[in-house]
Simulated assay, not measured.
Amino acid sequence: MADNINDFEAQATEEDGVNLGFTKELIDEIRDKKETNPGMFVSAWQEDTEGLEEKNMEDPIEKWLTAAEEGDLELVIKFLEETPSLLNSRDADGYTALHRASYNNNSSVVDHLLTSGVDKETRTNEGWTPLLSASNWANYEIVGRLLSNGADVNALSNGNLTALHLAVNSRSEEPDDVYMTVRYLLQAPGIDAGVIAGNGDTPLMMARRTSERIYNAIRDFMERP
């Protein structure tokens, strides 16, 4: 994915096959807006995590959630055996162990939680499911596990974002991971790739601004008969 406006400019002039629509005038306009109003460019994840509470490691629930976040499978198993009610417990912002393991790409913990019957559709205060969290960080193996276990590929955040929106606009620094995440999502039965987010963007519109390869993948999917 392009990391900054200079990368976008290079895409607009050098990538073959697709005109991403970044004229010099548009690039200058975006650059000016970014300098004068940086809040316009805050990512969905940054908005989602504003105001997170500090961890209280004296709290048994926080100990459990942190074990999942850090990928400590032995501790996760121990806590769950001792206190089964921890499985779907949440922190003050609504994050569960499955959310934390999903956004930190801890596949062994995710597998154990799924096997234990965790709620796959539980939402944070901002409406994020674990699939949305995994997609935002382009953790495609987690995305695959969640989808294989019946996670709703069309779940919407409070801002009307789908997993596909978040994958296209992922904060991951690995373009191949982002692409794989998008491909996994597009293969999910029943996916609606044309959902309009709260800001008016579809995933295809977002991809047009970020990645030719992802733009082509979504466009080709939507043009299928």
Rank of each mutant, 00 (worst) to 15 (best):
N105G: 06
N105C: 08
N105Y: 08
V109A: 07
V109Q: 08
V110I: 06
D111T: 03
D111W: 07
D111S: 12
H112Q: 10
L113K: 02
S116A: 13
G117D: 11
G117L: 10
K120D: 04
E121F: 09
T122I: 15
R123C: 11
T124M: 10
T124S: 13
T124Y: 03
N125L: 14
E126K: 15
G127M: 06
W128Y: 14
W128M: 08
T129P: 07
L131P: 02
L131R: 01
L132V: 13
A134S: 10
A134C: 11
S135T: 03
W137L: 15
A138H: 02
N139Q: 14
N139I: 02
N139S: 12
E141G: 00
E141M: 01
E141W: 00
I142L: 09
V143D: 02
R145E: 05
R145W: 03
R145S: 11
N149Q: 08
G150D: 07
D152G: 06
A155N: 06
L156E: 05
L156G: 03
L156M: 13
G159L: 12
T162M: 08
T162D: 05
A163L: 07
L164F: 03
L166Y: 02
S170Q: 00
R171A: 13
R171H: 11
E173V: 06
E173M: 13
E173L: 13
E173A: 09
E174M: 10
P175K: 00
D177V: 00
Y179F: 09
Y179W: 06
T181S: 01
R183H: 11
Y184G: 05
L186K: 00
A188T: 01
A188G: 01
A188K: 01
G190T: 00
D192I: 08
G194H: 11
G194E: 13
G194V: 09
V195Y: 03
A197E: 07
G198W: 03
T202E: 11
P203I: 11
M205I: 14
M205Y: 10
M206C: 15
R208F: 07
R209L: 13
T210P: 08
T210A: 15
T210Q: 15
S211K: 11
S211E: 09
